[in-house]
Amino acid sequence: MTANAKTLERPAVVEYNPFKETWQRFRRSPSGMIGLTILVIHLTIAVTSPLLVPYSPTKIDSKSLTQSPSSEHLFGTDSFGRDVLTRVLLGGRIALLITLTAGALALTWGGLSGIVLGFVGGVIDEAMMRVVDAMLALPSLFLYLLVISALGTSNTVLILMLAFRSGISIVRIARSATLDFVARDFITAARARGERTWNVVLRELLPNVLDILMVQWAMRWSWMLLSFSGLSFLGFGITPPTPDWGLMIAENRARLAFAPWASVFPMLALSTLVIGINLAADALAKAVGLDRSREAPV
């Protein structure tokens, strides 16, 4: 009787779930939790604000032009007499809707193409990467401006171009993440078994790059918000009088000296949202181990 005939046994471990694990690590980051809280508040407001707002966001009230904050208008009114609080509460809705939709699109097309390119490799991959690199040589705002000057602006145009440009960045990231795994033997093993390409991409590779894609999504989201509000600020985003933070800042900036509240409150709203997303994204990146933090020294 040899020793190794004994079946190896160890005390059973508690149920393990990678997502739960990530969440537990995420929870340990105070800045991440602050970011997440801010984010949740913003999302809640965006969903419920049509029910909450005290005034109409677009109705011009000639009796209360440019009033400073008071009990009646907590954030004051703008030069058209519209309630700033109302407009601030509603002003993130379109931005969030457009960027979230574009983000989902970008992640899907960019992530999948990146993984496939990384896995397939060869001439196709190299040629595509040249195109991707060329696209990345163009500051994103310029691409948007080019599209807008040709097509004008509408929600569809905005969503598609944001999704296109962010997708390009994600292709790159997903591809290089995939390359790390393609060289590993579990992919070699799958190929040696004769698995189909799609099976390898979806079942073997995707679960491994999901972390990186999640972090990318969070980061791209905040970038898209920046781009969107920038375009909006330049006058290429939402058409007035729809409430939107970037637009509100642009409209009221000229009167900064007399009515600072009309631009400061939308600025605060926009700032807290992007900072929230970024804090959460940073903590998420750390939680999935993309930032090599301290490890057990063994």
């Binding site: 990678p18 033997d185 579990f186 070699t188 491994n208």
Partner: peptide, 8 residues
């Protein structure tokens, strides 16, 4: 370590 998919 390399030949088993860490996510499976």
């Amino acid at each position: 370590d390399a030949s088993l998919n860490p996510r499976h």
